[in-house]
C-alpha cells in the first residue's frame, strides 16, 4: 500500500499546480468579468486596424 504515498504526493502536487494557476488567473483579473469575453467571441472580426 506504500504506493498510495507516491500516488497521493503526485496527485497533490498536480492539485497544487492548478491552485497556483487559479491564483494567477485571479490576480490576472479573469474573474472580474465573465460576460464580455463570451460576447466577444460572437463578434465578426472586421475591425479596422487602429492607426
Amino acid at each position: 500500500m506504500t504506493v498510495m504515498i507516491i500516488l497521493l504526493s503526485v496527485s497533490l502536487s498536480v492539485g497544487v499546480f492548478f491552485l497556483l494557476a487559479y491564483r494567477w488567473s485571479v490576480k490576472n483579473g479573469q474573474f472580474e468579468d465573465d460576460q464580455a469575453p463570451a460576447y466577444r467571441i460572437f463578434f465578426d472580426d472586421k475591425k479596422q486596424q487602429p492607426k
Binding site: D33, A36, R40, K47, Q48, P50
Partner: peptide, 22 residues
Amino acid sequence: VWLLENLQKINTGIYSSRVNFM
C-alpha cells in the same frame, strides 16, 4: 459591448476601448 469596443470607427482619435461587463 460591441458598440463600445468599436468606438474607433466613430472617431479616429480613439485607439481602442475595452468593456468590463461585470
